[in-house]
Structure formats: structure tokens, C-alpha cells
Write a protein that binds this DNA or RNA. Sequence first.
DNA 1: AACGATGATTGACT
DNA 2: AGTCAATCATCGTT
Length: 364
Amino acid sequence: MSFSICVAQCTDSLASTMDDQARIMQSIGGVSLAGHSVQGGMPLPPPHGHDGTDGDGRKQDIGDILHQIMTITDQSLDEAQAKKHGLNCHRMKPALFSVLCEIKEKTVLSIRGVQEEDPPDPQIMRLDNMLLAEGVSGPEKGGGSAAAAAAAAAAGGSPTDSSIEHSDYRAKLTQIRQIYHSELEKYEQACSEFTNHVMNLLREQSRTRPISPKEIERMVAIIHRKFSSIQMQLKQSTCEAVMILRSRFLDARRKRRNFNKQATEVLNEYFYSHLSNPYPSEEAKEELAKKCGITVSQVSNWFGNKRIRYKKNIGKFQEEANLYAVKTAVDAANVSAQASQANSPATPNSGGYPAPCYTPDGRL
DNA sequence: AACGATGATTGACT
DNA sequence: AGTCAATCATCGTT
């Protein structure tokens, strides 16, 4: 994605366009304007007649040519300027140029013009939308952290962990963002510089070559298209970078930690004391989440896993079930003793999940 | 390293 | 939307 490639591409197309123009000029033929050749080259040495089998002779020829070339600039700079001036001032020049422009318009340029006005590239639009959604383009700050925050919220886990990942993600995204913007700026600057340069060049040349303003416009459009294709590459690789970052971040979400002992205890207590209907309401989930220092969705996950695993192998959970049954019984007893009330706590177990076998001494 | 435990994800179902 | 069931990926223990 280098600038030099871009410039090379632009100059390529520019050069090819200029070749076309040169060809047109040639095909029009040696139009002579009051004795001045329109093709206006320097006087070339007359072709030598011999076949060049003689080595010394050839050297001599080359020497002659080189000498002539070296002297051309000395002898004819003023002369050339004078010729140019004469050409510019000739009364027939505007008419001739307009005819030539018209001919050019009708030939090569009109063919080129066909595929020029294409609507905004859907590929570019897709990339733009994606970059906007990921918070790479768009308003400064906020956008990126919003995406990161959403991902972090989904990540759950302990608050410190997720915040570390969060800031890491955000830092990387910011880095991508900075590179993207600085590159974009560079390209835009280069594009306008190059456009200006080409426009000046063409304007300058339009004094000696038939170049219509429309043609200059077209050339500018060609340059812009070249630069926007480079921009697309930039956008594409930025998107790729963000996707890689995201996938890494999402993978990081899977790096789970087991809940701490206290959290597991709280969850188990609720589960076994509601064994008949181990489906906490939204409010209950929120309270459990608060108590355990985890998110509501983690509570939901835990209950989902617990229900299915308990049901699958009740025998395996028997011991645990008894343990928590004792615990809740003791707690209830304490509570009732404190309240000085002899009401025995109702064990909520009527259907649904099978109750553990419980004996007062803790044995099955 | 192997293995069971465990939190998270996914797709189907109601 | 909530749940189930299967599965994945990692943790913690042996």
C-alpha cells in the first residue's frame, strides 16, 4: 500500500493518455502552421546512408549525434522560445486547437468516457460502513470505546479482568485508528498535490497542444479514481486488522475463571433450596449476581449448566445436595431460633427435580 | 499429560 | 425471551 505504487499507477495512466494524444497528433499528420511544424521537434540529423557494418564509422556516427544533441540546447533555446511564441500568437491557433480538440473528443476520449461515471462502489460503501461500525472512522473517540464496551459487557467475568481486556482492546483499536487516519490524510494530500501538478502541467501544455478543459477534468477524474482504489486497499486492510483484533478479543472472552468459592456456595444454596423449581426470577438472578459479583447472564449460565448436569447425573450430586440441605436446614433453624419461633421451615420440593436422600446424620 | 470440572457458546425448541 | 442439550475451551487436580 505504498505511495510510490500509487504515483506509478497514476503516471502510467497519464503517460498512456499522453501517448494517445501523441498518436492523434501523428495521425492528423504534419499539420503545418505558417511554415512551423506543429510537431515542433528539434531538427534531427539527416539519416546516414551506410549500413553500419563499419565499426569505426558507427562510432563516428554516434559521436556526431551526441555532438549535435549537446549543441542543440545551446544553439536553439532562444530560437525554440521564439518559435513557441510565434505559434502561440498565430491568429489561426485558437481555431486549429478547437478543431483538434473536437477531433480528439470524438475519437479516443469519447471511448474512454464511457466507463467513467460509475456509481459509488458498493465495496467501498461496505468497507466504510464497517469501519464506521467498528469505530475506526467516524467521530473522534467514543465510537471505538462503544464497540469495546459492548464486547466487554458481553464478556462478563470478573470486573478487573474485563476492564484489563477492555483497555487493551481499546488501545489496539486506537492504534489502528491513528494509523488509518494518518495514512488516509497522506493519500489525500498526495492526491491533491499530484492533481494540482498534473493540472498545472496540462494547463501549461494547453498553450502548445490542443487540450480542452474537459480533458483536464477527465485526467483529474482518472487520478482520483486511481487514488481512491489505493484508499480502498487501505480501508480493506484496516478492516482486516480490526477483524483480527476482534477475533482475538472474542477468544480472550473464553479465557474463563472459575467463580470463587463464596459465589459457588451462594449459587448452590439457592439451587438446592429451590430444587423443586430451580428457576430464579429475573429479580432473584439480579440479587444472586450482586451477591456473587458476577453478571446476570453468568447466573443464567450457571443455573442452565447446573440444572442439566444435575438432571443428567443425580447420583453424582447427591452428596453436594445433602450438604446444602444440611446447610439450609441449619440456617433456617438459626433464623427460627433467633426469632424464638418453632415454625419448621417448609422445604419447597414438589416435583420437578428429584430431592436428595437426606438423613439427619448426613449419611445417605 | 490426562482427565474431570466448569463457565461459555450455539442452535433448536417452546 | 428463556430454556435445553450438545459442545467447546479452559481450569485445576492427579
